[in-house]
Design a protein around this nucleic acid. Structure first.
Length: 746
DNA sequence: TGTATGGATATTTTT
DNA sequence: TATCCATACA
């Protein structure tokens, strides 16, 4: 039996596709990674394609690693020669080799969001841009959008014409690029942008890679942006020996799972693929192997409300499974408590491992309450994302030292550590050095070396000298043959007294920082032992391109918490989708967006992604009130919940337990209950979901807290009703029908 | 130059 | 709520 026999007909067709462009529209859980890996195996084993002629591109390191492992297990040898990597690392590898032809040096550093912001702050100061009116972040986002659309600063300037704001952005863009270059640094977007730049200006480099990558595969194609599209287009447009353009490009994606528009992803890349590549073969994978029928149907129904999509419908041979849970809790604490409870119960019964559970939410901020509950119950968990490990102060400090040692041109790094730990070198000094460096067109570090000549620094220069000799000493260590990379952090810690300072402080926070630093040392040791040719630049590069999801270890047993975005591509037997509330999910941000309808559809795709992560059970939940940035929010259940057909949902028995932490709710009572919103719900044919009320004006109704009252008015407000009731004991109140569980009294 | 303080402010998703 | 920033003071 061959490895291809286990594939279904569509999968097989995709795997056995010969040459030319191939678009695989792969629904959630339809085995797309399987198809890609089998296709790679097929090309190598059956078509005698050289492994090194294959390039497979993913978005995360984790996906790349998985793909390589799977190819490895499929074929006997050669898997290690297949180039499997992310867009960004692919570009870094290309640039490390050829970047000199566009005027950077090979040991360029990569700026993360923090570095970008620091640099932009300097730029704004220099250009006298009022950062109240033009925030660093928004300027950076304008620049990022431009780069994603392959607009350089010169073209941007042309396009901005006489528009006042555009001119400011343009000036900032120009100066920002100038400084990146003099710092010998690239930001994330530059990695792609400059690679294209290189290919457009250096025919030899382009030809080399076109010739090398005869077969290209791209995963998650729906998330590519214009620049990435162009990159792939260039790489896949090589001419073969017979002078024919083969376009041996296979892309896999699902337009319904396109959730990175905010990051420049261009959904038209996938929607118009067939137009960009003539003679494209299109294959749809519609059989889902992951979820139960109930879960899949719920997902299908929700996504049906989107208008901009390729028509497809997923089906499955799997069991019907259990209906989905939907519970409305009175507040976020209770929601968290209940989720933790239910995980604990299943776990203790031995029904599942902890790693079978995932708790998904829209925003990172929501993780805090849940984390708190899990801690109290001693349930091991891991939060993916949130404050990035490499964004922590102590880690950034050490990294800045490493960058300074590696690339003295990186002014941002040098400035960061100049006075860390304190050396009595303050702002005034730093500014004088900077002025000197600008006037003399040298790097900040070079200027520091000349401190004694810098005007006004006669006295402080004595403090700068030891700093310089420290760095120079570390640089020298690195040169010596016997020196190992992993010693370098120890040397930094010793030489600077960084560790000592933390030890003396001795606070919990300081200990935590020490732990983090040790983790960094471990990472470095691991890198040194495993990399083919370990270098400091190589390590810094790896660290810069790491993503949150890469830290997910699927062999460890813990509950994972993450945003819906991070969950894409993963699957779990049991999924909790919490915070299913209007304003949270969909986010309130979409209301003020340029195109609310488009944004809503993106949120809905995100919901689709969330639902389709679940294999056997899915629990949705909402909270009637939740604390958000110190303010109490009252939200209605998410419209997405209403888009799930009633018959796919299970209503649980009321849950009236009294929790001590909940005593002080603003109503003075505990209203923990399991909502049954669908007992009173009817779905209109137009898709405009309205609650059907079982009472009308003039009826006597009963409210859980206010008791009996007379309905005096019912007004339609959006997708809900506002009910005015005159209560016997509490007077006239206005209530929202979906919250106030009013019961008609006969 | 360093630190403490209070007030303003910004709140989605991240390779 | 958490972070950032300006200002005042040591």
């Amino acid at each position: 039996m061959s490895i291809y026999d286990s594939l279904n007909p569509q999968q097989k067709e995709a795997v056995l596709h010969d040459k030319g462009p191939l678009l695989i529209l792969a629904g959630a859980g339809s085995g797309k990674t399987r198809v890609l890996t089998h296709r790679i195996a097929y090309l190598i084993e059956e078509r005698n394609v050289n492994p090194w002629n294959i390039l497979a591109i993913t978005f995360t390191n984790k996906a790349a690693k998985e793909m390589r492992e799977r190819v490895d297990s499929l074929i006997g040898y050669g898997a290690e020669d297949v180039w499997v990597s992310t867009f960004h690392s692919t570009c870094v590898r290309i640039l490390r080799r050829y970047i000199e032809s566009i005027g950077y040096s090979k040991n360029f550093t990569i700026y993360d969001a923090d570095d970008q912001k620091t640099l932009m702050r300097d730029v704004c100061k220099y250009l006298n841009i009022d950062t109240k009116a033009y925030k660093e972040k928004s300027i950076l986002s304008v620049i990022s959008n431009a780069k994603n659309e392959l607009i350089n600063s010169v073209e941007f300037a042309k396009d901005s014409g006489n528009d006042y704001s555009a001119k400011i952005y343009s000036k900032a863009y120009t100066e920002y690029q100038k400084r990146l270059k003099s710092n010998n640094a690239l930001d994330f977007d530059d990695l792609i942008f400059k690679t294209i730049d290189l290919f457009k200006t250096n025919d030899e480099a382009l030809a080399y890679f076109q010739n090398r990558f005869k077969y290209i595969m791209v995963d998650e194609y729906q998330d590519t942006n214009t620049a990435q599209f162009q990159l792939i287009y260039l790489l896949s447009s090589g001419i073969n020996r017979d002078g024919v353009k083969e376009n041996n490009l296979s892309v896999v994606g699902d337009d319904d799972q396109s959730i990175y528009k905010f990051r420049g992803a261009n959904i038209h890349n996938i929607l118009n693929f067939e137009k960009a590549y003539r003679n494209t073969k299109v294959i749809k994978l519609e059989q889902n192997y992951r979820s139960t029928k109930n879960i899949l149907n719920a997902a299908n129904e929700v996504i049906l409300n989107n208008t901009t999509r390729k028509v497809k419908s997923l089906w499955t041979d799997n069991d019907e499974g259990e209906p989905l849970n939907f519970t409305v809790y009175s507040n976020d604490l209770e929601e968290a408590e209940s989720i933790a409870d239910s995980i604990q119960t299943s776990y203790q019964k031995g029904d599942a491992k902890l790693s079978d559970f995932a708790i998904l939410y829209r925003t990172n901020a929501q993780s805090r309450v849940i984390e708190d509950r899990l801690v109290r119950k001693n349930i091991p968990y891991k939060i993916i994302g949130g404050v990035n490990f490499y964004a922590r102060k102590e880690i950034k400090d050490i990294i800045a030292y490493l960058k300074t040692i590696d690339n003295g041109l990186d002014d941002i790094a040098v400035k960061r550590i100049l006075n860390v730990p304190r050396r009595g070198i303050g702002l005034t000094t730093s500014e004088r050095v900077e002025t000197y460096s600008i006037n003399n067109e040298i790097s900040f570090y070079e200027a520091l070396k000349n401190a004694e000549y810098v005007p006004g620094l006669e006295r402080t220069s004595s403090r700068i000298v030891p700093f310089i000799s420290l760095i120079e000493g570390l640089k020298n260590n690195l040169q010596s043959e016997s020196f190992s990379l992993s010693d370098i952090i120890d040397d930094i810690l010793d030489g600077t007294g960084y560790l000592k300072e933390l030890e003396t402080e001795g606070s919990d926070e300081a200990l935590e920082r020490i732990n983090n630093i040790n983790e960094l040392i471990n990472t470095m040791t691991y890198y040194e032992q495993n990399a083919e040719q370990p270098t400091l630049s190589g390590f810094l590069e790896e660290v810069a391109l790491i993503s949150a999801i890469d830290n997910l270890d699927d062999t460890a047993d813990y509950v994972v918490l993450m945003t819906l975005h991070s969950s894409k591509g993963l699957e779990f037997p049991h999924v909790y989708l919490c915070g299913m509330e209007e304003g949270i999910f969909p986010s309130y941000m979409i209301k003020n967006a340029d195109n609310p309808k488009e944004e809503l559809e993106e949120e809905r795709r995100l919901c689709y992604v969330g639902i389709t992560r679940a294999k056997t059970t899915l629990s949705l939940s909402a909270a009637r009130q939740r604390m958000l940035r110190g303010e109490m929010q009252y939200n209605k259940p998410s419209r997405f919940v209403y888009e799930i057909p009633r018959h796919l949902l299970k209503s649980e028995l009321p849950n009236n337990k009294v929790e001590s932490f909940n005593k002080k709710n603003s109503f003075g009572i505990n209203t923990s209950f399991t909502a049954k919103p669908f007992s009173t719900l009817s779905k209109n044919i137009g898709g405009n979901n309205l609650l059907a009320l079982d009472y009308e004006t003039g009826d006597t109704v009963k409210h859980i807290k206010f008791g009996e009252g007379l309905v005096i008015d019912i007004t339609k407000g959006g997708k809900d009703y506002e009910i005015t009731v005159e209560f016997k004991k509490f007077g006239v109140k206005k209530l929202i029908s979906s919250f106030a569980k009013l019961k008609k009294i006969e």
